[in-house]
Design a protein around this nucleic acid. Structure first.
Lengths: 246, 246
DNA sequence: CGGGCGCTTGATGTACGTCAAGACGTGTGG
DNA sequence: CCACACGTCTTGACGTACATCAAGCGCCCG
């Protein structure tokens, strides 16, 4: 339960901020959460919280994946982020959740009451700095998402997405996709057909291998395949070392 | 100089976080910056800092506008955010700037050395909470940008952009656009021609008025014109009261 | 082995990108 | 103050990539 090291981006701290804002070893967060957390199993497409719900709980993905999204009237759904094993979410920036959170596949979470985590005894500077690190990571992720959506070609967006997934998972070349084609489409701002066709095209051109629909093998110089890749690394400036649970 | 109240989103604080994380009256930030800041005038397209530069300065827009962006190899540019009068930027989440900052038009800024702002005397909890508020605002903006880019039709993106601009400016119906069509295109993930055509179409259909290219009048139920608007307000959950300088 | 869901593939329309030219407005110099 | 020139914005013609509508395949689970 919360027994992993948090995704560490702490190798890139703003040197100027005092300790309370410096991430430091984010394992302090797990430590503070250790006794507060309880496990929670969700089956596919189950909602964890809805947009507008009070932000009262902090979650960590153990196994599976979570999507946060919004809906437009005719049922059009837009996915803002995926959370993979090791990721925290729910420490929102408002009193009310700005997105709906659902699991994309059978998923195990750890849950802790924010009120409990932030009790006077628990709310150390270390905990606060860990929260700060999470917020920065969230901002970085969102900015990278916007950059991804700036690509005009479906293949570029898909490749950027696959690179993000690869960077956030352990293996360099083997990617597990714990979400449906529709989920990917709603994250990339495309239709499911275009996503599927792009997967096929990338496979046919030898850029990726796809033994099963939700397993992708990265082949050769994939980055060079992005027609207009950024001079600076577009998706994840520094690969995020992410300790996966179980 | 930094004499305005910061954009207040503090009406939506996570009630659970201790004071250090609660925005509180962000005027504390201006107060802390008051003596540290110096004015800086930039002419159109001038760079303020480049991607990769050390994050050492905090800026506030007094007049004009700033864009932060990245470049892809063939000169394709992608704009992540605009900063308007009253907005702070430069308090980045890393030691190095993740974007290049340039002014879109003749612009006046206030500049303060982060090291000075964050000296032991200045780094009060109030200052830190103000920084936290800025970071949350940045996250919200980035998420809204990603949502905007999720719209599949150019007119929808443009309308969402205009709504964002309207919400961030004083007047409800009269929008000043302190950036070129190319800037708007690079922010919306479109070409300049498509942006121009969308402006024309919206004008012809009576949704907006455009006395001059950079002045837009919002007419009638503009929101209803977005073909797939979000059930919940897409761009700015609560209009941001933004005190403009001079 | 059968059913259903997720994924893929096909055919067609349309919105946007691209290339190109022209109009407008703005700023500068005479 | 006017004329000119440059840059910004707009408009046009055309090609292309993606959305849409529709059908079919394949995998997984019951």
């Amino acid at each position: 339960m919360f027994s992993q090291t948090v995704p560490r981006t702490s190798d890139a701290q703003p040197a100027h901020y005092p300790e309370v804002m410096n991430g430091g070893p984010a394992s302090t967060l797990e430590h503070a959460l250790q006794s507060a957390a309880r496990p929670m199993a969700c089956s596919r497409d189950e909602a964890i919280f809805l947009e507008g719900d009070p932000c009262s709980r902090l979650f960590r993905v153990v196994e599976g994946a979570v999507r946060i999204c919004r809906f437009r009237h005719e049922g059009i759904r837009q996915i803002e982020a995926f959370y993979l094993p090791g990721d925290y979410f729910g420490f929102d920036i408002d009193t009310e959740a700005r997105f709906t959170a659902e699991v994309t596949t059978n998923t195990t979470l750890m849950v802790a009451e924010l009120a409990w985590v932030l009790t006077p005894t628990a709310r150390s500077q270390a905990v606060m700095s860990a929260i700060w690190t999470l917020a920065r990571e969230e901002l970085r992720r969102s900015q990278n998402h916007a950059l991804l959506l700036g690509y005009r070609h479906a293949q570029d967006r898909l490749l950027a997405f696959l690179e993000e997934m690869a960077a956030r998972q352990h293996c360099v070349s083997c990617i597990d996709l714990p979400m449906s084609r529709q989920d990917i489409a709603d994250y990339l701002g495309l239709t499911i057909e275009t996503v599927s066709r792009s997967f096929t095209d990338l496979t046919r051109s030898g850029v990726i291998g796809m033994p099963r629909p939700r397993t992708v093998i990265m082949k050769k110089a994939m980055r060079a395949r992005i027609s207009n890749s950024f001079d600076t690394i577009p998706v994840s400036p520094r690969p995020i070392p992410m300790t996966q649970s179980n």
